[in-house]
Design a protein around this nucleic acid. Structure first.
Lengths: 201, 201, 201, 201
DNA sequence: TATGAATGAGCTTTCATTCAT
DNA sequence: CATGAATGAAAGCTCATTCAT
């Protein structure tokens, strides 16, 4: 009556995902230090010991989640490498992010996790890898901005500088939403776009 | 001979300030949980026990610093209540903040501390007081924006929404600067103002 | 395979009892302040951390033990509410106490714990509850004394006064025994009874 | 204008006595561990550092006080070595103790201090010396009891046993008084004497 | 594989003691 | 001699991690 290996693996996978889901939610809401392994286990509906069959340390779980966050972020990269108008691309991209952040979707948690990582840091190697990935995103966005500038859609200025500003805005919004909760009033996509778009005054 | 009372008070004051300076720096860089009392003591060049002659708990030290941060923030309030053109007022205000953040002045640490508090939280009463102070700042800025809208300087839209966006930007910038360190390229004041100013395209 | 819930509960119970036994012994012998959690852990043959799975604070452990002591004391209450001759009741009661104190049984530790609590105090609410329970015992004894007086067995005088004196004697004996150890020579039950009984000189 | 050596010595003596008075009061009321050096300094109206000019350690202060207590107790020894009737001697002795305990005089504090020492212990050598002194008192009382027995005043039985019982009673009363405060109802001297006196029933 | 009891390193906090003035 | 700021060892407590079942 032993379970097949396949069954075992499927169950294992489900557990792993429960842990990661709980970890993502808790780490992003309360931060690394303020979240205990017990918290995560309870939230995932399993025992503390079981977590250690999937992740060697609390740190490793966090790093794995951060990796996912980066990957998720990178997926958005392709949004930024299209043949459509850069202005439209950015607008769509921004609309997607905003919607996620406001509806507290998983992506919103990923964003906060990244902020956490920026602020709390973890291990140095992870931080470095993470920084690299992040900077790549910033640079991709910068390229798109540059393209937009050439097309006359975007205003002039150092593209990287504008790109960094753009992501600062997104991150700031995610923080503010977490802080204010239901009292938060979200900006319009247009408001965010205005600082990129060419103005004629 | 015993020290005079004046001497004692001066010594006490110096120590207290060393503790607060070290605490502000460390809490803002590493967060509440990641900063140990020992860290602070070492950074301040004193013994751990001495901290407790000045602050009953680690929490109290953090709260005191946050109080200062809020006060510092409130001071900036008056910048927002002038008779000058709202556009100019905002530009100056923004320039001041940017300069501080980029030069890693104390104010920059205060900003991060506030972000920490938003994200990690501490005691509930402190959080509430803090939220109140913060919201007051947001509302003052909103009033100024409204004034600017009436003068035709600022673009239309819910003033509070724009105010929140503005502070999200500032906060996002402070985070990004902390994260990227010297690699960070700061935005221009004009770029930030574009979130607010009327565009004529 | 995971342990069954029953197994876990049994283990937990055993540990809890080891802690309480060690705590009772050490607190009663050395007092609250002089007994460290480490002492108790070592004496119970477990780690310090484990104590905190069972009792939130050192204080709570002490209070729980005191609660037991009070309960144990209350159990003796029924000895004092019988239909037998008050003189005989007291004699039996006293003999029981004496035997316990001298044989260093658990009850003897409970007695000392109560003395500790009288002298060191702990939390105010606990103290109050304790005082109430103690006074109830004193009053029950007083009632029995009154009955004895009416029967002509006991000498005259304020029954509460005599009751307090009686328990002072018992407490004093417990202290003295702790202090002198094996050198201690215990009194006879008759000697203790003599101050209650009617004398005809 | 330097003070004379004599003046200095007098001042020093006064300070020392202030410390000892405060220490006696606090140690007897709250116990050794629960009393801090700062408490004593404040209560004596001096600085903490000054205590260390008079006593090398907190322990030493306690021991010195205990020494005094023992001495004070020994002084009572002569009460027990008189030519008067043992019954009368004991009655007077008891009356004196009772009065002191109830009026919270210094002697009452000494009594409590001794109980503290019995319960909390301090250093071993001190404990031993103390035990010796105490036992001497017990033995003197025992001798007096023996004399009383021969005179037919006191009841029969091992004199040491009765002596220990007598001092247990005294100690128990002091504890009970501390515990109950104003609610305490003190026994009569006669009631206490009944433990010793010959009864004719 | 899954559990949660058990461990112990590390943190916050206290306080006897020292020392510069 | 007198002060109280400063020290640091030791206590209480937490929690990531291990392990017997």
């Amino acid at each position: 009556m032993a379970r097949t290996q396949e069954q075992n693996e499927r169950m294992s996978m489900i557990t792993r995902e429960k842990i990661m889901a709980a970890g993502l939610r808790l780490f992003s809401q309360k931060g690394f230090s303020m979240t205990s392994i017990k918290d995560i286990a309870q939230s995932a509906g399993i025992s503390t010991g079981l977590i250690y069959r999937h992740f060697a340390t609390k740190e490793e779980l966090f790093d794995k989640l951060l990796e996912n966050a980066i990957e998720e972020l990178s997926k958005t990269n392709h949004f930024l490498t299209t043949d459509e108008s850069p202005a439209q691309t950015f607008a769509q991209f921004t609309a997607g992010l905003l919607k996620d952040i406001l509806s507290s979707e998983e992506l919103s948690d990923y964003f906060l996790l990244i902020t956490r990582c920026m602020l709390e840091g973890t291990t140095q190697p992870m931080m470095d890898e993470f920084r690299k990935a992040d900077i790549s995103l910033f640079e991709n966005a910068a390229k798109l901005i540059e393209k937009g500038q050439k097309l006359g859609e975007f205003k002039q200025g150092d593209p990287l500088k504008l790109s960094l500003l753009y992501f600062s805005v997104i991150q700031g919004i995610a923080n503010m939403k977490l802080f204010m909760g239901d009292q938060y009033v979200a900006p319009e996509v247009e408001d965010i776009m205005d600082f990129l778009l060419k103005t004629t005054n």
